[in-house]
Structures are given as C-alpha cells and as structure tokens.
C-alpha cells in the first residue's frame, strides 16, 4: 500500500546556493551548450537515498553533478587525470524527491556542455 512515510528527503534549512548559482560559479558565466556529455540515471529510483548515476564524455576535463531539487544541490565534481582511461565515472547519490539531476562538463577546449535526467522518487508500496 501507499503506506510508507517518505523519509529519504534532506530537510531544507537556511539559505543555500541554488543550482543555477553553482552552475554559474563552475562556468564563470560562460554559455552552456549541448554535446559531448552523457548522464545516465534510472527513470525511477529504487531508493532515493542511493540512486546510481553515471557521467561520461569523450573530452571532459571536469564534470560537475547537481541535484537541482535538493535543498543543497551540490553532489560531486569529477576531475580526470592523465591516467583516466575515459572521462567517465559512476557514483550513488541522495535525492530528496523527484527532480532533475544535471551534469555540466568543462571540455578540454574550454567550452561547457550540459546533460540532464529526471529521476522519479516514489513512496512505493503495492504490486501485482
């Protein structure tokens, strides 16, 4: 039944930088296009407290990941070193409800690209 009480959320306290603030800080206000960046996330989170995501790009030097609907949207920043065999990484994140997860990559040529994916976080229960 829809009897679960939602506990995965991070309660909102104080004023935090918004996702857009964090993007502006990362890009220095540069234009963000679309292109060499892929973000893979599940349609529905099995557990809002541990949602698997994967970012990948052919030429990213750095990738910023944000959970736009969390009270504090910061998630992680990946920097790829000389011995990274690919500009790709996976991790698990907390989502305080259904929202867009956004990745912004700084490519080697200095340009910025964006990818996003909506993840549904549900109360759950019931079944056939």
């Amino acid at each position: 039944g829809a009897s679960a009480i939602f506990v995965a959320g991070l309660p909102k306290i104080g004023a935090a930088a918004t996702g857009d603030d964090l993007i502006a800080e990362f890009t220095g206000g540069a234009e963000v296009g679309e292109g060499d960046l892929k973000l893979v996330a599940p349609e529905i989170a099995e557990n809002g407290n541990t949602v698997p995501i994967e970012v990948s790009s052919g030429s990213a030097a750095e990738i910023l990941v944000l959970a736009m609907g969390n009270p504090t949207p910061s998630v992680a920043t990946f920097k790829f070193g000389k011995l990274a065999a690919s500009r790709a990484a996976s991790t698990r994140i907390r989502l305080a409800g259904t929202q867009d997860v956004v990745a912004i990559a700084k490519l080697e040529d200095g340009s910025f690209v964006k990818a996003s994916s909506t993840v549904k976080v549900t109360i759950g229960g019931c079944g056939g």
């Binding site: 407290n49 992680a76 790829f80 070193g81 011995l83 990484a89 996976s90 991790t91 698990r92 994140i93």
Partner: peptide, 27 residues
C-alpha cells in the same frame, strides 16, 4: 593515483550516499 600520476580526483558533497561508491576507468 597510479605510480604518482592522477587518475581521478573527486570532490564530494553531502548528497553522495552513505558508503560512497565510485567506478571509473584507468590506464
């Protein structure tokens, strides 16, 4: 790092889940 050369360097925020997990590729 591998033999002193960097592979990945990740900055984590509190939205990373309990028991942080990373997967990546190295040369």
């Amino acid at each position: 790092d591998f033999n002193g050369e960097n592979v990945v360097d990740v900055e984590l925020a509190p939205a990373i889940s309990t028991n942080p997990y990373f997967e990546f590729e190295a040369l």
